[in-house]
């Protein structure tokens, strides 16, 4: 009895994040085709389908699929233009790439039995480091050594400026950490919570409640998937503004 109860509640919320080779074998080398590969490929194919099939006819009056592509294009374009200014529009394709990848990975991860690539810190840290390194290099290329002026808050009293500079430097280097962990953590938490709640469905009495709760959480996760893609992108724009805009803010 006790054994049954113990095994009945063996919920493994983290099992869904295991990286597995698709075609057998245990060893995962850097080139092994895994479920990560599969779901990233699906994301790429979905993005390609949305961007290429919908806009195939190049209609002045857009079809439904074309207006979806145009909507996302316009959404990201306006975001880049609004947050970074006219200077930042040059980097719009990079931002759009990040946004599309994150949005599609998040949404595809919500399919049952799917693998959520963006819930892995390895993935998000690369995305965040791309932004961080790109922005830092761009800042030094654009402003030279003057880019360091960003850490020297000239509007503050002289006495506390060094302290502020230390804080600014620390917060600058925490950026990629929070940028990546926010995305991975949100998705991991959401999927793990759904899994934990769904695990209680083995208890017959609780199962109706579980169905309702999982449905509600699923709706919430749908929102989180979109909002996190939006947040990642807009933070990218905010960081980009530091590099391309006026450094003394």
């Amino acid at each position: 009895m006790a054994e049954e109860g113990a095994s009945g509640f063996q919920i493994h919320p983290m099992d869904q994040f295991i990286v597995k080779p698709l075609f057998g074998g245990d060893h995962i080398a850097w080139y092994t085709v895994t479920n990560v590969t599969l779901w990233m490929a699906i994301a790429v194919v979905a993005i390609a389908a949305m961007l290429m099939l919908g806009t195939r006819r190049r209609a002045i009056v857009p079809s439904r699929s074309q207006s979806v592509a145009e909507l996302i294009y316009g959404f990201v374009y306006n975001m880049v233009e609004e947050v970074t200014g006219r200077e930042g529009v040059k980097y719009f394709p990079y931002v759009l790439t990040l946004f599309l990848f994150i949005l599609f990975s998040n949404l595809l991860g919500l399919l049952p039995a799917a693998f959520t690539t963006t819930s892995h810190i390895a993935v998000t840290i690369v995305l965040a480091m791309l932004v961080f390194l790109g922005v830092t290099i761009l800042g030094f290329v654009k402003h030279g050594i003057g880019f360091l002026g960003m850490f020297w808050v000239s509007s503050a009293p002289l006495v506390i400026r060094p302290i502020l500079a230390v804080i600014e430097v620390i917060s600058y280097f925490v950026r990629p950490v929070s940028h990546s962990i926010r995305l991975a953590g949100n998705l991991m938490a959401g999927h793990a919570v759904i899994k934990v709640i769904a695990g209680f469905a083995t208890l017959v009495v609780a199962s109706p409640v579980v169905i309702g709760a999982v449905t509600a959480l699923y709706g919430l996760e749908l929102l989180v998937a979109c909002v996190q893609a939006y947040v990642f992108t807009i933070l990218t724009c905010v960081y980009l503004r530091d590099a391309v805009g006026d450094v003394h803010h």
Binding site: V19, W30, T32, M40, A41, T117, V126, L130
Partner: peptide, 13 residues
Amino acid sequence: TWDNQIFWLLVSL
């Protein structure tokens, strides 16, 4: 598994 993920991520990006 990180090198694998990072490799495929870069390919996808």
